[in-house]
Design a protein around this nucleic acid. Structure first.
Lengths: 341, 341
DNA sequence: GATCGTAACTAAAACGATCTAGTACGGTGA
DNA sequence: TCACCGTACTAGATCGTTTTAGTTACGATC
């Protein structure tokens, strides 16, 4: 098979009658060549359909043309969250236009995540990374800074010091929307079935609910590990009480689904006797009966924004100022209603 | 910040008192160094925590340490299919043990997918690729062959000629399992609500259902575009008939969910009056009420197998023989039962 | 007319591996 | 003694870029 030889900068230089260095200057739009020569070189490169070798570039420490995304989750349960696919698809859709690749890795622990960043840095494999789920005392921004690896943190609150660029999500406003909506419907006994409290957004949401006590709302929080089993257990206990809450809010769609199932098993009518809502939307919430009221976040758009943000950060000498992610909107469906009088 | 210099083969060579070439031989386990020297070099490399530079390796045409996966789907709807996340997670879990990276790209068209392979090849960015959804007259295996890019095709039937390694899925056996199970429960009027007939597995499933006429089963097929809206319309029409079928089978979980919702809206009891089943499982099918009987495919495992297969293929001089993917099993849940007498 | 500055280049050294073509050396057989 | 062989190496080219340190040529300046 006549494997077609790759056309290199040297080939172009030869044909243009200049040195490889000049071609490099021309191709990268930097001074050192006359406008006339530049045009000639560009034309020749175009004619031969030249593409830079990203590996060669990466080797000399220039752009690798790839960004990295390390997902710190148990691999087995990753598929249960539509978030990732949507997010990645959005990231991709933005990167594709710039011909930038995406290297994806699923890591089981934080330590392995850090190790991945170090490895990527050493081999200059990626130009920047997307960091998900900021935590308290997060070691990642610090490491990335010391590695000199540009990054965008997605989620959480604005980073005060401008230490690292953050695409923050206004979780307080989001929680306000949901709990406020329920309070507006007359609900005064609201339960929040949350995921792990280690997550910043869980604490924020909890705070918002507690803040509603001023409006006469009695809030109650049950923490789970996000698993349907835990949610089922919590809900069974909850619905066995003498006095039921009038609304239950879940941290995500799968938890809400598990909750809904318990109401159906135990014969509690939704929304006549109990309203249900979720902080996370997906296609299924509209397909079940009754359909579930959700906070709808455009995760695809979030991915696009994150990628765009990172690409800009790569070209910026300084840490860019924070940006606010797309604001979620409330999608009212069948599972919520006025509190029974 | 004292950016720690990367330790290279040259450093190790210097300390060991040999040439860089010898170190390369030793590290890659090939002849040319004595066992004694090899051990000494290995020890020094280990002591300095040396890691190969994948970019340098890729440049000389050796391994890039990355495999590629181009998903040809509309990016926006990717998130609705849990398949991808599960599959990718499985691939990852296998690659991670070998320290091989995964480059992921979402492409809108077949032509762009082909272009992606060409680009990857040119820059030696990936060592091999995973190819999804084989089609009739698929141009991809041919291109990959001519590019000399190892690949594994996932899905479809065994490749007759051994032209390209295939991890095939036994869709006939799968369809047998589902339809046979329903026939065994006494169902004689079975409806199959399918996706686009362009897909090979749709045709196979249809064939299996039609084959059951020998056992007195009257099968009927409704083709949809996989969208919940179409499924809802089909189900409404179906359940408005004078004589209902006794079982409906859907191509995937979301379609089944949409179908279930219609039965609930129209007051058809499941499974007392109508049994429902799906060819595709996901976490939600167990969370709805009634939970849905599904063919459960271990997509995560499929991803692991695909990655393992590809890694083996990379080391093999020849095209490896086909393998059969994990066989799906029937998960019987609440949505199916004996036909009412 | 010597000096200077600048634009437009060139030459060559990186980057970190792999890989081919040698070479030195000890041993073997005739 | 010499040709020959195999082992254990070394030297140096190679991959395709980027980048630094020169080197021209040419016009402007004093």
């Amino acid at each position: 098979m006549p494997r077609s030889k790759r056309v290199t900068i040297a080939d172009i230089a030869r044909q243009a009658g200049v040195s490889p260095g000049a071609v490099s200057f021309a191709l990268n739009g930097r001074p050192g060549v006359s406008e006339e020569t530049r045009q000639r070189i560009l034309a020749i490169a175009d004619q031969h359909d030249w593409r830079p070798s990203s590996t060669a570039r990466a080797l000399v420490g220039a752009r690798a043309g790839v960004i990295g995304f390390a997902v710190n989750r148990p691999a087995r349960t990753l598929g249960t969250e539509a978030f990732f696919t949507d997010f990645i698809a959005g990231v991709q859709s933005s990167l594709a236009t710039q011909r930038v690749g995406l290297q994806l890795v699923v890591v089981p622990t934080l330590e392995e995540e850090l190790e991945t960043y170090r490895r990527w840095r050493r081999a200059n494999q990626v130009d920047g990374v997307l960091v998900l789920d900021p935590r308290v005392d997060d070691p990642r921004p610090g490491l990335l800074r010391s590695l000199g690896l540009p990054s965008i943190t997605i989620g959480g609150q604005p980073s005060q010091g401008g230490e690292h660029a953050t695409l923050w999500l206004d979780d307080s406003a989001a929680a306000d929307t949901v709990f406020g909506y329920l309070a507006g419907l007359g609900h005064r006994r609201i339960v929040y079935v949350s995921g792990a409290a280690a997550h910043e957004h869980v604490r924020l949401r909890r705070g918002v609910l507690e803040g509603l006590s001023a409006r006469g709302v009695h809030g109650e929080v049950f923490e789970t590990d996000y698993s349907p089993n835990r949610v089922t257990a919590v809900m069974r206990a909850l619905l066995s009480r003498a006095e039921l809450p009038t609304a239950v809010v879940f941290d995500n769609d799968m938890m809400a689904l598990a909750g809904l199932r318990v109401t159906q098993e135990m014969g509690v009518r939704v929304p006549a006797e109990l309203s249900l809502a979720s902080f996370d939307d997906s296609i299924v919430t509209g397909l079940v009966h009754p359909s579930i009221t959700c906070l709808t976040r455009d995760t695809f758009l979030l991915g696009e924004h994150a990628a765009d943000f990172l690409l800009e950060q790569l070209n910026a000498p300084e840490v860019l100022p924070d940006r606010r992610g797309p604001v979620p909107t409330l999608t009212v469906r069948e599972s919520t209603g006025r509190v029974p009088s």
